[in-house]
Design a protein around this nucleic acid. Sequence first.
DNA 1: AATATAAAAGACTTATTTATCCTTTATATC
DNA 2: GATATAAAGGATAAATAAGTCTTTTATATT
Lengths: 150, 150
Amino acid sequence: MLTNASKYAIRAVLHLTKKMDEATKMSGKEIGSDLDIPEAFIAKILQKLVKANIISSHKGPKGGFYMSKENLNNNINDIIWAVEGRDIFEGCFMGLPVCSDENPCPVHHIVAPFKEKLYMKFNDLTIKDFADEIKDNGTHLTIKGINVKI
Amino acid sequence: MLTNASKYAIRAVLHLTKKMDEATKMSGKEIGSDLDIPEAFIAKILQKLVKANIISSHKGPKGGFYMSKENLNNNINDIIWAVEGRDIFEGCFMGLPVCSDENPCPVHHIVAPFKEKLYMKFNDLTIKDFADEIKDNGTHLTIKGINVKI
DNA sequence: AATATAAAAGACTTATTTATCCTTTATATC
DNA sequence: GATATAAAGGATAAATAAGTCTTTTATATT
Ligand code: FES
Ligand code: FES
């Protein structure tokens, strides 16, 4: 459903936002290594995000990426849109040219509520809200340093 | 989540199964045109499905693809496995290396129940069951010839 | 036996996604 | 002003997915 690029982007932005209070700026290198994302690849993605005003950046020593006050008001769908250039939630799970309640495919009744739930979460919460929720719930953006149970 | 190839495969098998009573065999050409799938591409996919014993085929005039009694006992996950060679339901929606209740990503609580529902449907119903359900519910495998409402 | 039909097989092209590398530009610090 | 640091920009490579084309093989019909 999401490409690697947008998964990386979402995790990077939320990670940046979580870290915000501690260290103001993070280098692309640091973000990549924190989240186990190839550094050169996440660098390209971060570039896009800056252009789309999803995150902010500053060059040179002590520079890096950071979240401005305004950046925090965006939502996850804005990130996806910036990276993909399209809405990933439209379209039928089974490949029909339209997805609608009136002309449902055999799994529409399962897929549609899921898509709606996720779409709402990705639209209604700001990045700031989302990052706060992550802190409160203790959910993960990486499993680095975590004693993983499966 | 699914590739085009497996979406095509699933729709093709269910379409074949639905048509079973009427015309015993269908050509790849017919399947492609019925479902709006590039003919050369669906031909390749059908070839794979025959090899994997998901569907059956017969060469020559009056030949084509069809569902044997045994073929009907497979399920959707078998189709996906035959085409993709892997389980598409494992893996975290946000790209974490594991998906588990113990180490959830921020959307795991939304994604996990959805994946489970779909996985069960794709595992517990045989192709025959699934096709019957489609007939009963009037859900679509194509929108060809349908007066589409969005 | 000749012919026509339809799948099987294999090689190939195109498009998209993922990823890497190298150069340039901005800027803080010495 | 020289130097080191970090993002920006651009080109290119590698991998995967999507799709096409041509030839071969099996088989029913005449
Ligand atoms: S019609 Fe297939 S998911 Fe909605
Ligand atoms: S941990 Fe991300 S979907 Fe389960």
